[in-house]
């Protein structure tokens, strides 16, 4: 009889409570005690999945891949600093249907592994990007059921985004630990409460399978404005700032009347990719007048890999401005 009552009242509870309280109610017990309890977890997970999956994107970095999650209708993405890897970098995000969109890395927190990325192209479907709600209440507690999403091992359209259901097992200022296994490619992907609200971003793993670490949303919120302003905060271990002098353009020049003339463009260099050609006459370097080779060298020495560069040039009698990002020396 007692068992029957329990199950009845639970069924009742699921039907009446608003969705936002579902997580609270299924986390009320320290461990599930019945099939009804299990079904409550399953139903919450399956109710939250469609929206959560739609916003979980892959991030293609050329030399690797990670995950991220869209948190605004205009395409702001939360991810890990060791995925974004720097500020102002061009990356591609992979939408769940496999379409790729251009994006730019904004700021990051190098010590805690938090980063933002902005999708810079329109949503091909038109309209708003799918996005998830960020749980700003910081109320997640030990033992809460949670789920992780991510593109484990890289984006795979046939497989889709991979879900892992688990519990929150440790908490500290800048880290949440869960026992849902993560692997390379999941980095930067979202950790959700059972209402489908974002509570963390996947960061790293321990040797043992159940040891998986996430950056709590709070860390992001504390430095949100800095990251929006594309600041590189802190130094390592999750991202390292490029040092001055590490920037690479890839041209040889000689001084001529009115500037520097390109005598050679290196193969597969930022200069070649930006379309610079032998014979182009360079006038200015980010607005600074170019007069001698040493002058340009000094200007380059103040810049780092990934920095933006605008060059005013003359080609075949026509004036042009070429914009590019410096490569790594």
């Amino acid at each position: 009889m007692r068992r029957l009552l329990t199950s009845l009242s639970l069924g009742f509870a699921v039907a009446l409570i608003p969705a936002s309280l579902l997580a609270f109610s299924l986390n009320a017990k320290k461990a599930p005690e019945s099939a009804e309890d299990l079904m409550m977890i399953q139903e919450a997970l399956q109710a939250a999945l469609p929206k959560a999956k739609a916003a979980t994107i892959g991030i293609d970095l050329g030399d690797g891949s990670g995950s991220g999650v869209i948190v605004s209708k205009d395409g702001l993405v939360m991810t890990a600093a060791h995925v974004s890897g720097g500020v102002g970098k061009d990356v591609e995000v992979v939408m769940p249907d496999g379409s790729k969109l251009k994006a730019e890395t904004l700021g990051l927190m190098a010590e805690t592994d938090a980063a933002l990325i902005q999708i810079t192209e329109e949503n091909p479907d038109g309209g708003d990007f799918p996005f998830v709600e960020v749980n700003k209440t910081d109320e997640a507690k030990l033992g809460d059921w949670i789920f992780s999403l991510g593109h484990s091992g890289g984006f795979d359209k046939e497989r889709g985004v991979v879900v892992r259901l688990a519990r929150l097992v440790r908490m500290a200022n800048t880290t949440i630990q869960t026992d849902g296994t993560l692997i390379g490619g999941d980095s930067g992907g979202p950790l959700f409460d059972m209402d489908g609200r974002l509570i963390g971003i996947h960061s790293r793993v321990g040797q043992r399978l159940p040891v998986n670490m996430h950056v709590p949303v709070r860390v992001f919120l504390d430095s949100w404005d800095k990251m929006l302003k594309s600041e590189f905060v802190g130094e390592g271990p999750f991202a390292k700032q490029e040092k001055k002098g590490s920037g690479f353009l890839g041209v040889a020049t000689k001084g001529v009347e009115g500037g520097l003339e390109i005598t050679k463009v290196g193969k597969k260099t930022p200069a070649e990719e930006a379309g610079l050609k032998e014979g182009d006459l360079l006038h200015t370097f980010n607005g600074e007048k170019l007069e001698t080779r040493d002058g340009m060298k000094a200007l380059l020495a103040e810049m780092a890999a990934g920095d933006k560069l605008a060059l005013e040039i003359t080609r075949d009698g026509k004036d042009e401005t070429i914009e590019l990002k410096l490569g790594k020396r």
Binding site: G64, S65, G85, G153, I183, A239, K328
Partner: peptide
């Protein structure tokens, strides 16, 4: 957790 296939990155 390192990204997969990341070989020549600054963070070896």
């Amino acid at each position: 957790m390192e990204k997969m296939k990341r070989s020549n990155s600054s963070l070896g």
